[in-house]
Amino acid sequence: MNNSVFFGALTVAGLAAGAAAAGTLDDVKARDQLNCGVSTGLVGFSAPNANGEWEGFDIAVCRAVAAAVLGDPNKVEYVPTTGKTRFTALASGEIDMLARNTTWTFSRDVDLKFEFAGVNYYDGQGFMIPKELGVSSAKELDFATVCIQTGTTTELNLADFFRANNITYEPVPIETNAEARQQYLANACDVYTTDASGLAATRATFDDPGNHVILPEIISKEPLGPLVRHGDNEWGDVVRWTLNALVGAEELGITSANLAEKAAGTENPEINRLLGTEGNLGEMLGLDADWAQNALSAGGNYGEIFAKNIGEDTPVGLARGLNAQWTDGGLLYAPPFR
């Protein structure tokens, strides 16, 4: 009996590994649907709204890719994954791409055999703590109880930070952001640590966001971005250049308002190449010539997506900071479209 379970598991793993080797772009086209792995719920990044439709900053990437490949941003099946299940879901072929505030690290890229398509949010790990505790620096957190999502880079950063500062802590491992929120609000942990953007998004859902502070220390670099499986370069290119199209469009001044006008043809040859009125970039990707137009019509350029979901006018209220265009002193820099 135990033997058959064991071999059953082997079979499943074997079949899954076999499925992963096929061309993902063709699979997605044949299925006429994109399977996109997202988080189980983080307001502003990926969460279902009151109508049960997923929306957010990471969701916008899924929608743009679906629009570029299939011509319709709504042809996406969202697969909620936890910090623990996401990589298995991607490696097994259950999802085509993962857009779930996932940090680009060496070992994930090289050892876990994934391909990061780029960075859609430059983040860092921070700490959130109730104001009444009067803590002003993370170095004062000796012996604090820290809520932390298990299976993330934050776990390792946290261990490193406390070791480097020679202070101790009590980790409380938690599966999802919702559980962390519950424990933090019940004061079962003093501090909640995750990416600073995630902290801001979680704080936005509190009844009294003003009573919680995010400490100034950012203890890590967390470049978050969408990722795909290793070894399928065509599909990797599609996701990478869809993301670049969103970023490049902002730099080139293409917005959802003037998209139709620019698509009719402009003086700027790069805009023409991007929108498909000149050259054959779409064909090189194995997509239609108007792939970038479709991607941009899904939710606008990077700046519009940012402002709508997590920008300063939203409850999450994040400043562009590092995520501004390179021309504005940020890190966003799309390679040239030629």
Binding site: S107, E155, L156
Partner: peptide, 11 residues
């Protein structure tokens, strides 16, 4: 849990 996630050695 954590070891599997950090090393990617599911099987």
């Amino acid at each position: 849990g954590i070891t599997m996630n950090q090393t990617g050695r599911e099987l």
